[in-house]
Design a protein around this nucleic acid. Structure first.
Lengths: 229, 229, 229, 229
DNA sequence: AATGAATGAGTTTTCATTCAT
DNA sequence: AATGAATGAAAACTCATTCAT
């Protein structure tokens, strides 16, 4: 019986595939360009120029331009799903959970600004199959938000007359719209922005009881603020 | 009776440019396709297919593909400016003006859904010159909104601690995000949607005094509603 | 009621599509190059050079390089099917029909030398769907030939011990191999070549009775010749 | 005694090239793919996939893609030349030699089916120099066959009116066409196929005298058969 | 012997635009 | 007003080949 330890690894293929760090570097370059020019208006040449290699060389890493978009969106989408799952673990009170949700969302968008913005803007450019595949992933922000608002209504803390589905869509749009102007280079920290969002969103849905409990709208508007950033 | 065969259809005037009705038809077709596929991903062929003519024929109406985008955005932008100017004429009370502003904005977005959506999404695809030219046009929604909020603060009806510039941007994003999901084919009428927006936005910025004056947040939330949809 | 005679033709589209003569010209150019270099080794550039236009211009006529191959093969295949159908109409005697079949086949191959050669060589380069579609077309030369040989056996004129399916394949290969060397520029006329083929093929399958009836193999070999070339 | 440390592993001889067995393996893989897809349509990637290594690694064995084709064709061509030389050694009678020639050819084609098919199909894809070099090699099948037929005519056993050059080309095409359909996986053994070919070819060229001598065409058709396969 | 990154030149295809009719 | 042929430039993608490791 041959000694397994001295026997060479099965002919040929360890086949590691491309270096994951280099791959990340390249996908990040693609994301930057997509953000600046838009996916469709970006050429493979634009990406390779940014990386500093020839355009043909990119096909070591992907099979098509769409693969770049897919990678960017898939990754941020998966992280977003994780993010949504973590929200509310711990927080019991609906308004506190709502505040936590908003803060988490703002932090997430700020932390993954490029990729998250691309996801919002360019999702429809993916092939139908890939859109479908990605959507299977899990609960969306809208759905999570809706659940919180429903809990809030049950607890009498969210205006009972609110159409929660519609409100969830509106609030999600409100939060997502930060990707249209927010820049990490500015002086506004994510938590400061979150404070503003939390204050505005909470008062926009709070019930009479919730306002009273907080000691008025203005009090409610700062109740969940982290304060000075 | 004159000979119909030799007489040109329209009385006297030599036809200088293309038939404006046909032009509108074609620009509308372009807008539809831009909305569906995005400007950059749309080819001249896509547009001509939609119209039912050959692509070369489009150059009777425009000098370049960008001209279509320019026409669409310029027109809706100009109308938006008009829209903004009209708001508040008449309304004296800041919260009433804020409500009127929101309603007008929702109505406008709903009425010009395709063009307004394109303007939001594709403005950056215009040449720098045209972007500049269009921006000269007049006050933006954000600026108009900011002015109203400032008046509201002066009148003690808007939370004095609110960062009005930031709030204006957030609220505008919130309103504009309706273009991402609203459809005139759905059962939700623009005024019904406006009612929801008005309620949420007003309570999100109202001062303690404003809430008290209205008889509570829930009352404030319906004070400016048109009601039954 | 409007007068149909004076009413203009329905807006826009007579849409004739490309000039069929020009199209033929271009497909013929493609066929020439495919013959010289092989389909896969031919670039779109090669074809456009032959035609004398830019490569992009070819896409007025086809949607892909494969379309050229399809057109060439489809057309010659359809004609071949027609050809096969016509053979034997009239001829009653099996050996006479066999001779007629061979002559027709040689004439056909000579008359469509380029396209028929391409069909034989490059059929497998078509997509699976197109191969399938074309094969649906009708009876092949092999099948037609087999039928004739079976009739010949029934009439006692073809060697009873002959495996007709195999013989049909062999004879078809023999006939088709002329595409590997035949040139219309040479001095050998199609009918002269057919005379040789007829003589060789008939004697290669004839029964004893057929030979006797003809007055010997050498007599049989010239019985169906057109003679003087 | 030489210093073992400086001496290469294998006794004396420095290793010049790659392992010949591995080389054969790789060339065979290339041949398989060339057969399936055609030379021009095959990429180096296709070959390396078949072997199970990366494409860059193939350049340890060859200097270019064409080298694969050259190796395949050169080898089979040289063997074919040998094959042709051996034919007729021993056989004295022209028809017996013709039968032996056909049998040898069929056996050869069956034994080297892949390489021989590639040689027939892809010879023209070699560079002009290599085509020239290979052609220098020796007598071709057509020439050998022509010589036999001429001997046959001299002996009165081949139809005197036969154009032997043309007949040789036709018969060679007939034999070679087996590469278009023959498969060693089928139930037809090479010698069975050779029996059919021998019978058909001999009767297709035999003189009256040869037929009479054999006792009729049908007798002639089986005279050189090996019989049951 | 093999890997995997990269090259550079090529391929097929797309597409905005022009223009004679 | 529209056609349809063509252009010319650029797009996405392919691929034989090289090379440092």
């Amino acid at each position: 019986m041959p000694d397994a330890a001295t026997e060479p690894a099965k002919r040929g293929r360890p086949r590691r595939g491309p270096d994951p760090e280099r791959f990340r570097e390249i996908v990040d370059a693609a994301a930057e360009v997509f953000l600046e020019k838009g996916y469709s208006a970006t050429s493979i040449q634009d990406i390779s120029d940014r990386v500093g290699i020839l355009k043909g060389s990119l096909y070591h890493y992907v099979r098509s331009k769409e693969d770049f978009l897919y990678r960017i969106i898939k990754d941020v989408y998966d992280e977003a799903i994780d993010d949504i799952r973590k929200i509310g673990e711990g927080e019991q009170e609906p308004l506190a959970r709502l505040a936590a949700f908003i803060r988490a969302h703002v932090r997430f968008a700020a932390a993954h600004l490029t990729a998250y913005t691309i996801q919002l803007r360019e999702f429809e450019q993916l092939s139908a199959e890939r859109r479908e595949e990605i959507r299977q992933g899990g609960e969306t922000y809208v759905e999570a938000l809706q659940a919180i608002l429903e809990d809030g209504q049950a607890a009498g803390l969210v205006d009972a007359s609110l159409q929660v589905r519609l409100a969830s869509i509106i609030i999600t749009g409100e939060l997502n719209s930060m990707t249209r102007w927010y820049s990490p280079k500015g002086s506004l920290e994510p938590d400061q922005l979150a404070d503003v969002y939390v204050g505005m969103v909470l008062t926009s849905v709070a019930s009479e009881a919730a306002v009273t409990k907080a000691g008025g709208v203005e009090a409610l508007r700062t109740e969940f603020a982290l304060g000075q950033g």
